[in-house]
Write a protein that binds this DNA or RNA. Sequence first.
DNA 1: CCCTGTCGTTGGTGACGCCAACGTTGGCCC
DNA 2: GGGCCAACGTTGGCGTCACCAACGACAGGG
Lengths: 152, 152
Amino acid sequence: MDIEEGTPPQRLRALPSRLTNQAALAANRIVDRALAEAGVRRYHYALLAASEEYGPSSQAALGRRTGIDRSDMVATVNDLAERRLLDRAPDPEDRRRNIISITAAGRRELTHLDGLLAVAQEDFLAPLGAADRRTLADLLTRLVDHHRAEQG
Amino acid sequence: MDIEEGTPPQRLRALPSRLTNQAALAANRIVDRALAEAGVRRYHYALLAASEEYGPSSQAALGRRTGIDRSDMVATVNDLAERRLLDRAPDPEDRRRNIISITAAGRRELTHLDGLLAVAQEDFLAPLGAADRRTLADLLTRLVDHHRAEQG
DNA sequence: CCCTGTCGTTGGTGACGCCAACGTTGGCCC
DNA sequence: GGGCCAACGTTGGCGTCACCAACGACAGGG
């Protein structure tokens, strides 16, 4: 069994953290390419999805849901508000807050993006069967939950 | 079962690509913190490891092994050569190439980093037992190999 | 000898994930 | 009511990673 030209060193191949990172890189490449078709980045999708599922919320609350930093949230909301996919309005009951709501156009765009993402996931998971996909999701979920609880 | 404050939207939670990315983020945070103890970044470790395992090689060859871009390789080699962990010498047989070799100090540093990384992996994989870890590594390897073959 | 390709290098780009600081505003406790 | 602390949006910045285009130097094949 020859060592191929591009084979990483054993030290790196045996590193679960690197394996995870390489898989994430592949996933992100595929997802980013899909979202780019719609002129959108991952942050945009995450924000639209959170906005749709939790209804009108403050930027800070949406940030907590999506893991997007408050400062990055500003720019992301700017982008989507400019395209009329989100609405940003001051909260009359708490003047510190902005109330972010998804628009009808935003919902349509979200549905469209869902379609693109479904294809992307299929691409990413292509080599795995249904049972393996469930196993993978389960294992990753346990890891992510553990590290979220540990210090989030 | 209440929905916690920081719970991501179902759309995001159900996305394998995002799950993978979140796991990779957790892994990278842990690994970066560990390597930072030694004043080192992931690129540095990858390059040292490749250099040790494959012996004297050109920068381009090491780049292919590690997945580091030729342009980023320059700076990474600069860093490590400056610390005398690597040696950079022109190849007399092909004047386009530099021959990169790991030094004795580099080997010692690599051993040290291996120790730090072992702890980090244990941290990252803490919630999983031995069998689960093997399963995870297997699934991720299949994904990574697939996407490397597909277009690498 | 020309052509093609590789090599190292420079310079630049973009997304992501962060952090610090500020002024504004709310809520709480004395 | 006054004081204090916490949360909010915003600005501005940072570092890493991953990538791309272009260049001059050089090697090798036709």
